[in-house]
């Protein structure tokens, strides 16, 4: 069904295009902070399947920032010297990212942020999801289920990166609304499932029968906590566990009733930022992704907005099958 829709969309786009096929192909570069985790892989795969890329209007090149701000800066230099028309940027570090944005700005190339925001006023636009909100939503989901009382543990992302800082802020905001809930421990597991598993095993030893809720700042770590609980012979149903991102394994765990996840829509971020970047590079460009119809609360507005907030989708038993079906394509 979806395929059919996309096929039709492509066909329509192609016919519309034949007249302007001779027009200059836009060259858009993307540098993502790193391609090791599933979320960024989904993002990169999605941007390459954007309608504008498929019909040849835009040529997109994705660079792997390898979790290193300097690598990303060099990729900016490359894109500037090769005269890219626009750059899409998910920096590993918000402040180091500002330097790169400045470089592109000086060369007259618009930069659209996505997923993680560079700390720069020169960013032409930003298409991403509000991490403070996701931190709030996941903590709220846990706190509501444990009845706003009891003990929780928080598994942080890598300390100091913007997603961790903002998700922590959101976690704390929700926790402040439940003053009777005690935070037993808060520690990083660096987004890693294996690390979170060991950490949770140790906490279960340290706080036998005391932990009611687990707030994992991403799905990987929440899944690690679930494995730890299982490995100790405890029942996952005695814990309320939440994560963020909506990776495939987490969707499966939601389906099994083991956790809650908040889906971050990689596809919408990718296709949305591509449309905005193309519009900035060529004022005659028309947005082509179906995501603008999918999220009426996020209108395209001629690509003029400073901020496009891609909504979070709480994953529930009701929508998980649909989301999984979409993923397996």
């Amino acid at each position: 069904m979806k395929l059919l829709k996309m096929g039709v969309a492509c066909a329509v786009a192609l016919t519309a295009l034949t007249s302007v096929a001779e027009a200059k192909q836009l060259k858009i570069g993307v540098t993502l902070y790193g391609l090791k985790a599933e979320f960024m892989q989904l993002w990169a795969a999605a941007v390459k399947t954007s309608p504008a890329v498929k019909n040849g209007m835009v040529e997109v090149t994705v660079f792997d920032g390898r979790y290193d701000p300097l690598v990303q800066q060099e990729q900016f230099a490359t894109m500037i010297s090769q005269k890219f028309d626009a750059i899409i940027f998910a920096p590993i570090d918000a402040d180091a990212g500002a330097t790169a944005v400045q470089m592109a700005h000086d060369a007259g190339i618009p930069v659209v942020g996505t997923n993680t925001r560079a700390n720069s006023k020169l960013l032409a636009s930003y298409v991403g999801s509000d991490d403070v909100l996701s931190g709030y939503l996941e903590a709220k989901a846990v706190l509501t289920k444990i009845g706003c009382k009891g003990n929780v543990v928080i598994i942080d992302g890598p300390i100091g990166i913007s997603a961790q800082i903002q998700r922590s802020e959101g976690n704390k905001k929700a926790l402040a609304e439940c003053p009777n809930v005690k935070i037993l421990e808060e520690k990083t597991a660096n987004w890693s499932r294996a690390e979170a598993q060991a950490l949770m095993e140790n906490w279960l030893t340290r706080y036998p029968k005391q932990i009611d809720g687990v707030i994992g700042q991403n799905d990987e770590m929440a899944l690690g906590a679930i494995e730890a609980i299982k490995s100790q012979g405890l029942k996952v149903s005695d814990f309320v566990i939440a994560g963020i991102d909506g990776i495939t394994d987490a969707l499966l765990a939601v389906k099994a009733g083991e956790m809650t996840s908040i889906l971050q829509d990689a596809r919408a971020q990718a296709m949305g930022s591509l449309d905005v970047a193309a519009k900035l590079a060529d004022p005659s460009y028309k947005p082509q992704a179906d995501i603008w119809a999918q999220y009426p609360e996020m209108p395209f507005s001629d690509g003029k907005l400073q901020n496009y907030s891609v909504p979070w989708t709480p994953v529930t038993a009701d929508n998980v099958d649909r989301l999984l079906a979409f993923r397996s394509k």
Partner: peptide, 15 residues
């Protein structure tokens, strides 16, 4: 063993 423990083959495993 890591895959068996975590329940998934992960590309970012073992970094």
């Amino acid at each position: 063993l890591l895959s068996a423990r975590t329940g998934s083959g992960l590309t970012q495993a073992g970094i």
